[in-house]
Amino acid sequence: MQLDSLYPYVERVIDVVQSKTQKYLFLAFCLLPTFIMFCIFTVYPMIGGLYYSFFKWSGTSSVMEFIGFDNYTRMLSDSVILRAIINDYLFVFIKVFGIMILALFFAVALTQLRIKEAPFYRIVFFFPNIMSVVVIGILWQFIYDPNIGLVNGLLRAIGLEEWARPWLGDMTWALPSVSIPAIWAGIGLFMLLLMGGITNISKSLYEAAEIDGASEWQQFWKITVPLIWPQIKTSIIYIVITSLNGSFVLVQVMTAGGPGVATEVMGSYLYQKAFEDFQFGYGAAIGVLILVLSLVSVIILQVLLKKEKVEY
């Protein structure tokens, strides 16, 4: 409060001490170099991607042929694109449910139940979040390895020999198998976000509910979930964006889209088309598709997850 009342006076002091030119020079010094770099390495590539998507181009300097929307119409008849889009959304779906259910359960358990070793779990669960995707991918390839892998080894050990299979080489099981490491590596962050929300809920609400005879299950649905809805919403949207924009890294490391196109997602298909088949125009068009789909998904989610703000 005191600061606010001082503010006009203070502003004048600064104006007296520094001339206008000096001020603008300093402003330019602060903003321009950064903004120029941002334009060169972030804005230009984005716009460039949009621009390249209207060309047929193999990357060699001169032959760059303008073909209008041909890359986009080609996507319509490319069956791999459809498969990639479906796979991307399957990943999103498995991740949102897997991560949210587990993260919510762990968050409630670690905040509400006064478990002594809670900090230990928090530290352990979060760790995979900061591991490199390459390391996670390679490690899980081992875990799924048909011969020396942990999964098949475990299945054999408990007598379910017939369940053992080459997980990442199996047409039906490859996709869920690739999404498990994503859940494994993703839970910690969202657990912490939700824990932050839960610790801010006033204890008296639970005490009042207890007196009214509400079961713990009722308390969870009637108090905890509505009050941490903003965190739940943020988490879901964050998972969807990062998955659509980045799940291909794990796919590319673990299966490169295979077997066949069973795990192909838009990002990995972009990489293969552009940097392996040298169809840069088509690759750029796939990039635009990713941009459009992720923006549309976020807008739809914003509407779907909208809920009146709850305050008790």
């Binding site: 590539p45 460039g48 991607g49 924009n245 291909f248 990489y271 941009l291 992720s294 976020v298």
Partner: peptide, 20 residues
């Protein structure tokens, strides 16, 4: 502008970035 750019898929920019 800076904050919104965090939402964009950087993969879209990789082809132009490579040629730049």
């Amino acid at each position: 502008t800076y904050l919104a750019s965090m939402m964009l898929p950087s993969v879209l920019g990789w082809i132009p970035l490579f040629f730049l």
